[in-house]
Design a protein around this nucleic acid. Structure first.
Length: 276
DNA sequence: ATGCCTCGCATCGCGAGA
């Protein structure tokens, strides 16, 4: 089962890009961010015609998140992150799909830093921490994915010095992310590719993509049950090279069947009852 | 130090993005 997260930067403007990518990559479940479309103007028909069930939470001009599935019906469990009834921004959607609980979200950017937008980002992260803490220990696989607007480490940015004053690379936001990981979550891409330079965003200007001057800010965090099923992970850079494309590329994981622990007999000579 | 480029729309400039 392939699960992806993709900040499309305007669902209607990028619809040809999205449909082309769906056909090319054949993801089973996709979380989208930055729809930039009011609820009633979401291109539901085109996505259903492409073979996907879909739920979405729109907002005029900014934000907006969606979830697509071609592996069965999406059972929505939540829209909106709990913890602040006055927060009207469409940034969080959650559903059970194909036996996996998926949280898809668009974390606030937080620039300029310092300032009220940065304060909102940190409050949002605190709420995310509280809520994801209630999901980690579920027996079912849980995938918490989206545009985190967060560069975790120096290894996730082309030139760290250029981002020193940016909210995405601020010590406070990075510390909050590390606290979240402290609940036990696995950063799927970093887990499988500990030493690789992998980016998911390249700015439109200065030929950033051509120079691979990118940052890694789109992440898929997995609870223990999902980590056991993790087979592959990466960023699909292909659509970033297309015309009229998003400034992000889709990040993805592949989950396999649960590994069964061998009970009783161990293989001769191995002396090991580990997983297969 | 700033803008670069691109989006949607309270459109022919602006706010926001990262």
């Amino acid at each position: 089962m392939r699960i992806a997260t993709y900040n499309v930067n305007g669902i209607n403007g990028r619809l040809p890009i999205l449909l082309k990518w769906l056909k090319l990559a054949e993801p089973d479940i996709v979380c989208l961010q930055e729809l930039k479309v009011p609820q009633e103007k979401f291109p539901q028909k085109a996505i259903r015609d492409a073979g996907y069930d879909v739920i979405w939470h729109g907002q005029s001009r900014w934000n907006g998140v969606a979830m697509l599935s071609r592996v069965g019906e999406i059972h929505e469990t939540r829209r909106g992150l709990p913890g602040d009834p006055d927060d009207e921004q469409s940034r969080y959607i959650e559903a059970a799909v194909g036996g996996v609980l998926i949280a898809g979200f668009y974390l606030p950017n937080g620039n300029p830093w310092p300032g009220p937008k940065f304060d909102y980002k940190l409050r949002w992260m605190a709420r995310l921490h509280a809520h994801l803490g209630t999901l980690y220990d579920l027996e079912a696989p849980v995938v918490a994915c989206g545009d985190y607007n967060l560069i975790p480490t120096d290894e996730d940015v082309y030139k760290p010095d250029n981002w020193k004053k940016d909210a995405l690379f601020s010590p406070e936001a990075r510390a909050a992310y590390q606290e979240l990981l402290g609940q036990g979550w696995t950063d799927a891409i970093r887990h499988l590719h500990p030493d690789e330079r992998i980016y998911s965003f390249w700015a439109y200007w200065r030929q950033s993509f051509e120079r691979n001057a990118g940052i890694r800010i789109d992440h898929l965090l997995l609870n223990k049950a999902a980590t056991k099923r993790l087979r592959a992970a990466g960023v699909d850079t292909r659509p970033r090279g297309w015309e009229k494309t998003s400034d992000h590329a889709p990040a993805w994981i592949e989950l396999g069947e649960a590994r069964r622990t061998r009970i009783g007999k161990t293989a001769k000579g191995s002396g090991d009852a580990s997983t297969d």
